[in-house]
Design a protein around this nucleic acid. Structure first.
Lengths: 157, 157
DNA sequence: CGCATATAAATCGCACGCGATTTAATCGCA
DNA sequence: TGCGATTAAATCGCGTGCGATTTATATGCG
Protein backbone atom coordinates (compact mmCIF):
# COMPACT_ATOMS: atom_id res chain seq x y z
CA UNK A 1 0.00 0.00 0.00
CA UNK A 2 2.14 2.85 -1.22
CA UNK A 3 -0.93 4.80 -2.31
CA UNK A 4 -2.23 7.41 0.10
CA UNK A 5 -5.71 6.82 1.45
CA UNK A 6 -8.37 8.73 -0.51
CA UNK A 7 -9.85 11.67 1.35
CA UNK A 8 -12.43 14.34 0.79
CA UNK A 9 -10.05 16.48 -1.25
CA UNK A 10 -9.33 13.61 -3.61
CA UNK A 11 -13.02 13.02 -4.15
CA UNK A 12 -14.23 16.58 -4.45
CA UNK A 13 -11.52 19.16 -4.96
CA UNK A 14 -9.24 17.05 -7.13
CA UNK A 15 -11.41 15.74 -9.94
CA UNK A 16 -8.35 15.07 -12.11
CA UNK A 17 -6.79 12.83 -9.48
CA UNK A 18 -6.12 9.12 -9.77
CA UNK A 19 -8.85 7.13 -11.38
CA UNK A 20 -8.80 4.66 -8.53
CA UNK A 21 -10.39 7.30 -6.33
CA UNK A 22 -13.55 7.48 -8.39
CA UNK A 23 -16.24 5.29 -6.89
CA UNK A 24 -18.06 5.19 -10.22
CA UNK A 25 -14.96 3.73 -11.79
CA UNK A 26 -14.67 1.06 -9.12
CA UNK A 27 -18.26 0.07 -9.76
CA UNK A 28 -17.69 0.11 -13.50
CA UNK A 29 -14.49 -1.92 -13.45
CA UNK A 30 -15.81 -4.39 -10.87
CA UNK A 31 -18.74 -4.97 -13.18
CA UNK A 32 -16.32 -5.73 -16.00
CA UNK A 33 -14.44 -8.12 -13.71
CA UNK A 34 -17.68 -9.92 -12.75
CA UNK A 35 -18.57 -10.28 -16.41
CA UNK A 36 -15.19 -11.78 -17.20
CA UNK A 37 -15.53 -14.22 -14.32
CA UNK A 38 -19.03 -15.28 -15.39
CA UNK A 39 -18.23 -15.62 -19.07
CA UNK A 40 -16.47 -19.01 -19.04
CA UNK A 41 -18.97 -20.38 -16.52
CA UNK A 42 -21.95 -19.29 -18.62
CA UNK A 43 -20.39 -20.15 -21.98
CA UNK A 44 -20.87 -23.79 -20.98
CA UNK A 45 -24.61 -23.08 -20.96
CA UNK A 46 -24.57 -20.85 -24.02
CA UNK A 47 -25.73 -17.84 -22.00
CA UNK A 48 -24.53 -14.28 -21.56
CA UNK A 49 -24.66 -12.68 -18.12
CA UNK A 50 -27.74 -10.65 -19.04
CA UNK A 51 -29.46 -13.75 -20.40
CA UNK A 52 -28.59 -15.58 -17.20
CA UNK A 53 -30.07 -13.00 -14.85
CA UNK A 54 -33.07 -12.69 -17.15
CA UNK A 55 -33.82 -16.40 -16.81
CA UNK A 56 -33.39 -16.16 -13.04
CA UNK A 57 -35.78 -13.21 -12.90
CA UNK A 58 -38.34 -15.11 -14.98
CA UNK A 59 -37.98 -18.25 -12.84
CA UNK A 60 -39.34 -16.36 -9.87
CA UNK A 61 -42.77 -15.84 -11.41
CA UNK A 62 -44.59 -16.97 -14.51
CA UNK A 63 -46.21 -14.66 -17.04
CA UNK A 64 -44.30 -11.55 -16.12
CA UNK A 65 -44.67 -8.71 -18.60
CA UNK A 66 -41.73 -7.08 -20.36
CA UNK A 67 -42.33 -4.00 -18.25
CA UNK A 68 -42.24 -5.98 -15.00
CA UNK A 69 -39.09 -7.76 -16.07
CA UNK A 70 -37.59 -4.38 -16.91
CA UNK A 71 -38.38 -3.09 -13.44
CA UNK A 72 -36.61 -6.11 -11.94
CA UNK A 73 -33.55 -5.72 -14.17
CA UNK A 74 -33.53 -1.89 -14.43
CA UNK A 75 -33.82 -2.11 -18.20
CA UNK A 76 -36.37 -1.10 -20.84
CA UNK A 77 -37.93 -2.63 -23.91
CA UNK A 78 -35.29 -1.22 -26.25
CA UNK A 79 -32.77 -3.52 -24.55
CA UNK A 80 -35.11 -6.33 -23.55
CA UNK A 81 -36.99 -6.96 -26.78
CA UNK A 82 -33.97 -8.11 -28.81
CA UNK A 83 -32.68 -10.11 -25.82
CA UNK A 84 -36.03 -11.83 -25.33
CA UNK A 85 -36.29 -12.63 -29.02
CA UNK A 86 -32.91 -14.34 -28.89
CA UNK A 87 -33.94 -16.35 -25.82
CA UNK A 88 -37.20 -17.26 -27.53
CA UNK A 89 -35.28 -18.37 -30.63
CA UNK A 90 -33.21 -20.62 -28.33
CA UNK A 91 -36.45 -22.10 -26.93
CA UNK A 92 -35.66 -20.94 -23.41
CA UNK A 93 -38.82 -18.83 -23.03
CA UNK A 94 -42.11 -17.97 -24.71
CA UNK A 95 -43.51 -14.52 -25.54
CA UNK A 96 -47.30 -14.20 -25.78
CA UNK A 97 -49.51 -11.17 -26.21
CA UNK A 98 -51.86 -10.76 -23.28
CA UNK A 99 -55.38 -11.54 -24.52
CA UNK A 100 -56.95 -8.96 -22.21
CA UNK A 101 -54.49 -6.20 -23.21
CA UNK A 102 -52.86 -6.68 -26.55
CA UNK A 103 -50.17 -4.10 -25.78
CA UNK A 104 -48.65 -6.41 -23.16
CA UNK A 105 -46.26 -9.29 -23.84
CA UNK A 106 -46.16 -12.02 -21.19
CA UNK A 107 -43.06 -14.13 -20.67
CA UNK A 108 -42.68 -17.69 -19.42
CA UNK A 109 -39.74 -20.08 -19.19
CA UNK A 110 -39.94 -23.24 -21.26
CA UNK A 111 -39.02 -26.65 -19.84
CA UNK A 112 -35.69 -26.19 -21.58
CA UNK A 113 -35.27 -22.79 -19.94
CA UNK A 114 -35.81 -24.34 -16.52
CA UNK A 115 -33.40 -27.13 -17.44
CA UNK A 116 -30.67 -24.60 -18.30
CA UNK A 117 -31.24 -22.88 -14.97
CA UNK A 118 -30.94 -26.23 -13.22
CA UNK A 119 -27.58 -26.77 -14.89
CA UNK A 120 -26.57 -23.29 -13.75
CA UNK A 121 -27.18 -24.02 -10.09
CA UNK A 122 -23.48 -24.44 -9.37
CA UNK A 123 -22.56 -21.04 -10.84
CA UNK A 124 -23.30 -18.81 -7.83
CA UNK A 125 -21.15 -20.95 -5.57
CA UNK A 126 -18.25 -20.81 -8.02
CA UNK A 127 -18.59 -17.05 -8.24
CA UNK A 128 -18.87 -16.73 -4.49
CA UNK A 129 -15.57 -18.55 -4.08
CA UNK A 130 -13.90 -16.28 -6.62
CA UNK A 131 -14.86 -13.20 -4.64
CA UNK A 132 -12.42 -14.30 -1.96
CA UNK A 133 -14.34 -12.32 0.60
CA UNK A 134 -16.22 -13.30 3.74
CA UNK A 135 -19.95 -13.79 3.26
CA UNK A 136 -20.74 -11.17 5.88
CA UNK A 137 -18.61 -8.68 4.00
CA UNK A 138 -20.36 -9.51 0.72
CA UNK A 139 -23.75 -9.03 2.31
CA UNK A 140 -22.71 -5.65 3.71
CA UNK A 141 -21.31 -4.62 0.35
CA UNK A 142 -24.50 -5.74 -1.38
CA UNK A 143 -26.62 -3.65 0.98
CA UNK A 144 -24.46 -0.58 0.49
CA UNK A 145 -24.62 -0.92 -3.28
CA UNK A 146 -28.38 -1.27 -3.23
CA UNK A 147 -28.61 1.89 -1.15
CA UNK A 148 -26.25 3.70 -3.52
CA UNK A 149 -28.23 2.53 -6.53
CA UNK A 150 -31.40 3.86 -4.96
CA UNK A 151 -29.83 7.26 -4.40
CA UNK A 152 -28.44 7.42 -7.93
CA UNK A 153 -31.83 6.59 -9.42
CA UNK A 154 -33.44 9.35 -7.38
CA UNK A 155 -30.69 11.78 -8.41
CA UNK A 156 -30.95 11.00 -12.11
CA UNK A 157 -34.56 12.06 -12.21
CA UNK B 1 -37.65 -3.22 5.40
CA UNK B 2 -40.08 -6.06 4.86
CA UNK B 3 -37.43 -8.09 3.09
CA UNK B 4 -35.58 -10.63 5.21
CA UNK B 5 -31.85 -10.01 5.55
CA UNK B 6 -29.85 -12.10 3.08
CA UNK B 7 -27.95 -14.94 4.66
CA UNK B 8 -25.57 -17.64 3.61
CA UNK B 9 -28.38 -19.87 2.39
CA UNK B 10 -29.71 -17.15 0.14
CA UNK B 11 -26.30 -16.59 -1.37
CA UNK B 12 -25.17 -20.18 -1.75
CA UNK B 13 -27.88 -22.78 -1.41
CA UNK B 14 -30.65 -20.79 -3.05
CA UNK B 15 -29.26 -19.69 -6.38
CA UNK B 16 -32.76 -19.13 -7.76
CA UNK B 17 -33.61 -16.73 -4.94
CA UNK B 18 -34.34 -13.04 -5.31
CA UNK B 19 -32.12 -11.19 -7.73
CA UNK B 20 -31.49 -8.54 -5.14
CA UNK B 21 -29.38 -11.01 -3.21
CA UNK B 22 -26.83 -11.38 -5.98
CA UNK B 23 -23.89 -9.10 -5.36
CA UNK B 24 -22.95 -9.28 -9.03
CA UNK B 25 -26.36 -7.91 -9.90
CA UNK B 26 -26.02 -5.02 -7.46
CA UNK B 27 -22.70 -4.12 -9.03
CA UNK B 28 -24.18 -4.45 -12.51
CA UNK B 29 -27.28 -2.40 -11.84
CA UNK B 30 -25.40 0.26 -9.86
CA UNK B 31 -23.12 0.61 -12.87
CA UNK B 32 -26.18 1.18 -15.06
CA UNK B 33 -27.44 3.76 -12.57
CA UNK B 34 -24.10 5.59 -12.59
CA UNK B 35 -24.14 5.65 -16.37
CA UNK B 36 -27.63 7.13 -16.41
CA UNK B 37 -26.61 9.77 -13.93
CA UNK B 38 -23.50 10.72 -15.89
CA UNK B 39 -25.17 10.77 -19.28
CA UNK B 40 -26.91 14.16 -19.09
CA UNK B 41 -23.88 15.71 -17.39
CA UNK B 42 -21.49 14.43 -20.07
CA UNK B 43 -23.84 15.04 -22.98
CA UNK B 44 -23.17 18.73 -22.43
CA UNK B 45 -19.53 17.99 -23.29
CA UNK B 46 -20.29 15.51 -26.05
CA UNK B 47 -18.64 12.67 -24.12
CA UNK B 48 -19.68 9.18 -23.10
CA UNK B 49 -18.69 7.87 -19.70
CA UNK B 50 -15.90 5.73 -21.17
CA UNK B 51 -14.61 8.69 -23.16
CA UNK B 52 -14.68 10.80 -20.00
CA UNK B 53 -12.63 8.37 -17.89
CA UNK B 54 -10.29 7.86 -20.83
CA UNK B 55 -9.53 11.58 -21.00
CA UNK B 56 -8.99 11.65 -17.23
CA UNK B 57 -6.62 8.70 -17.44
CA UNK B 58 -4.67 10.41 -20.24
CA UNK B 59 -4.54 13.70 -18.34
CA UNK B 60 -2.48 12.04 -15.67
CA UNK B 61 0.49 11.35 -17.93
CA UNK B 62 1.48 12.23 -21.47
CA UNK B 63 2.45 9.74 -24.15
CA UNK B 64 0.86 6.71 -22.53
CA UNK B 65 0.62 3.67 -24.77
CA UNK B 66 -2.64 1.93 -25.61
CA UNK B 67 -1.52 -0.96 -23.45
CA UNK B 68 -0.81 1.27 -20.46
CA UNK B 69 -4.16 2.98 -20.86
CA UNK B 70 -5.77 -0.45 -21.04
CA UNK B 71 -4.15 -1.45 -17.76
CA UNK B 72 -5.51 1.69 -16.13
CA UNK B 73 -9.02 1.15 -17.51
CA UNK B 74 -9.06 -2.68 -17.44
CA UNK B 75 -9.73 -2.77 -21.18
CA UNK B 76 -7.90 -4.01 -24.25
CA UNK B 77 -7.17 -2.75 -27.74
CA UNK B 78 -10.31 -4.31 -29.22
CA UNK B 79 -12.33 -1.86 -27.13
CA UNK B 80 -9.83 0.99 -26.99
CA UNK B 81 -8.82 1.34 -30.64
CA UNK B 82 -12.26 2.35 -31.94
CA UNK B 83 -12.78 4.59 -28.89
CA UNK B 84 -9.44 6.32 -29.39
CA UNK B 85 -10.10 6.81 -33.08
CA UNK B 86 -13.36 8.56 -32.25
CA UNK B 87 -11.62 10.81 -29.71
CA UNK B 88 -8.90 11.54 -32.25
CA UNK B 89 -11.54 12.40 -34.85
CA UNK B 90 -13.00 14.84 -32.32
CA UNK B 91 -9.53 16.42 -31.89
CA UNK B 92 -9.41 15.55 -28.20
CA UNK B 93 -6.24 13.45 -28.43
CA UNK B 94 -3.46 12.42 -30.79
CA UNK B 95 -2.25 8.90 -31.67
CA UNK B 96 1.35 8.53 -32.80
CA UNK B 97 3.42 5.44 -33.50
CA UNK B 98 6.43 5.25 -31.21
CA UNK B 99 9.52 5.88 -33.33
CA UNK B 100 11.61 3.48 -31.25
CA UNK B 101 9.03 0.66 -31.39
CA UNK B 102 6.62 0.90 -34.27
CA UNK B 103 4.23 -1.58 -32.66
CA UNK B 104 3.37 0.95 -29.97
CA UNK B 105 0.87 3.79 -30.27
CA UNK B 106 1.40 6.73 -27.90
CA UNK B 107 -1.50 8.90 -26.80
CA UNK B 108 -1.60 12.55 -25.81
CA UNK B 109 -4.39 14.99 -25.06
CA UNK B 110 -4.75 17.97 -27.36
CA UNK B 111 -5.34 21.48 -26.04
CA UNK B 112 -8.99 20.93 -26.87
CA UNK B 113 -8.96 17.67 -24.88
CA UNK B 114 -7.61 19.49 -21.84
CA UNK B 115 -10.19 22.20 -22.38
CA UNK B 116 -13.02 19.65 -22.34
CA UNK B 117 -11.63 18.20 -19.10
CA UNK B 118 -11.51 21.67 -17.63
CA UNK B 119 -15.20 22.11 -18.47
CA UNK B 120 -15.86 18.75 -16.83
CA UNK B 121 -14.38 19.78 -13.49
CA UNK B 122 -17.77 20.27 -11.91
CA UNK B 123 -18.99 16.79 -12.84
CA UNK B 124 -17.50 14.78 -9.93
CA UNK B 125 -19.06 17.10 -7.40
CA UNK B 126 -22.48 16.83 -9.04
CA UNK B 127 -22.16 13.05 -9.04
CA UNK B 128 -20.98 13.01 -5.44
CA UNK B 129 -24.09 14.91 -4.39
CA UNK B 130 -26.31 12.47 -6.24
CA UNK B 131 -24.87 9.53 -4.32
CA UNK B 132 -26.59 10.86 -1.24
CA UNK B 133 -24.07 9.10 0.95
CA UNK B 134 -21.49 10.30 3.45
CA UNK B 135 -18.00 10.71 2.03
CA UNK B 136 -16.56 8.29 4.57
CA UNK B 137 -19.07 5.68 3.46
CA UNK B 138 -18.19 6.23 -0.19
CA UNK B 139 -14.50 5.85 0.55
CA UNK B 140 -15.13 2.59 2.42
CA UNK B 141 -17.31 1.31 -0.40
CA UNK B 142 -14.66 2.26 -2.94
CA UNK B 143 -12.00 0.34 -1.02
CA UNK B 144 -14.17 -2.74 -0.71
CA UNK B 145 -14.95 -2.70 -4.42
CA UNK B 146 -11.29 -2.36 -5.33
CA UNK B 147 -10.52 -5.37 -3.13
CA UNK B 148 -13.37 -7.34 -4.68
CA UNK B 149 -12.22 -6.42 -8.17
CA UNK B 150 -8.74 -7.66 -7.33
CA UNK B 151 -10.09 -11.00 -6.12
CA UNK B 152 -12.30 -11.41 -9.18
CA UNK B 153 -9.40 -10.73 -11.52
CA UNK B 154 -7.29 -13.33 -9.72
CA UNK B 155 -10.17 -15.81 -9.82
CA UNK B 156 -10.86 -15.34 -13.51
CA UNK B 157 -7.37 -16.45 -14.47
C1' DC C 1 -69.44 7.51 -29.41
C1' DG C 2 -65.14 10.07 -30.77
C1' DC C 3 -60.89 11.64 -30.17
C1' DA C 4 -56.85 13.23 -27.52
C1' DT C 5 -53.87 11.12 -24.22
C1' DA C 6 -51.36 7.56 -22.21
C1' DT C 7 -49.12 3.22 -22.20
C1' DA C 8 -46.49 -1.20 -23.82
C1' DA C 9 -43.53 -2.91 -26.86
C1' DA C 10 -40.79 -2.66 -30.90
C1' DT C 11 -37.51 -0.39 -33.97
C1' DC C 12 -33.33 2.14 -35.22
C1' DG C 13 -28.70 3.96 -34.80
C1' DC C 14 -24.61 4.31 -32.18
C1' DA C 15 -21.12 3.32 -28.62
C1' DC C 16 -19.33 0.11 -25.90
C1' DG C 17 -17.04 -4.78 -24.29
C1' DC C 18 -14.98 -8.80 -25.73
C1' DG C 19 -13.62 -13.47 -27.94
C1' DA C 20 -11.14 -14.61 -31.84
C1' DT C 21 -8.17 -13.59 -35.34
C1' DT C 22 -4.91 -10.82 -38.10
C1' DT C 23 -1.08 -7.72 -39.08
C1' DA C 24 3.11 -5.79 -38.12
C1' DA C 25 7.14 -5.23 -35.45
C1' DT C 26 10.45 -6.83 -32.00
C1' DC C 27 12.81 -10.30 -29.32
C1' DG C 28 15.45 -14.36 -28.23
C1' DC C 29 18.39 -17.67 -29.00
C1' DA C 30 20.95 -21.08 -31.55
C1' DT D 1 22.51 -13.66 -38.78
C1' DG D 2 18.10 -15.98 -39.23
C1' DC D 3 13.84 -17.44 -37.85
C1' DG D 4 10.32 -19.00 -34.61
C1' DA D 5 8.08 -16.96 -30.60
C1' DT D 6 6.30 -12.99 -28.54
C1' DT D 7 4.15 -8.59 -28.31
C1' DA D 8 1.16 -4.31 -29.62
C1' DA D 9 -2.46 -2.82 -31.98
C1' DA D 10 -6.09 -3.36 -35.18
C1' DT D 11 -10.03 -5.82 -37.13
C1' DC D 12 -14.38 -8.41 -37.10
C1' DG D 13 -18.77 -10.16 -35.38
C1' DC D 14 -22.11 -10.28 -31.83
C1' DG D 15 -24.63 -8.96 -27.71
C1' DT D 16 -25.76 -5.50 -24.88
C1' DG D 17 -27.49 -0.44 -23.19
C1' DC D 18 -29.89 3.48 -24.44
C1' DG D 19 -31.87 7.96 -26.60
C1' DA D 20 -35.26 8.81 -29.84
C1' DT D 21 -38.96 7.49 -32.43
C1' DT D 22 -42.77 4.51 -34.09
C1' DT D 23 -46.65 1.31 -33.84
C1' DA D 24 -50.44 -0.60 -31.72
C1' DT D 25 -53.62 -0.74 -28.13
C1' DA D 26 -56.18 0.99 -24.21
C1' DT D 27 -58.04 4.77 -21.43
C1' DG D 28 -60.51 8.91 -20.25
C1' DC D 29 -63.42 12.53 -20.80
C1' DG D 30 -66.59 15.59 -23.28
Amino acid sequence: MTQAAPNLDDLIANPDGPLAQFLCFSVYSTGLAFNRLYKPLLDRLGLTYLQYITLIALSRRDDQTVKELGEALFLESNTLTPLLKRLEASDLLTRRRDTADERVVRLALTAQGREVLRKARCVPEEVLEATGMAVEELIALNDQLKALRGHLQAGAR
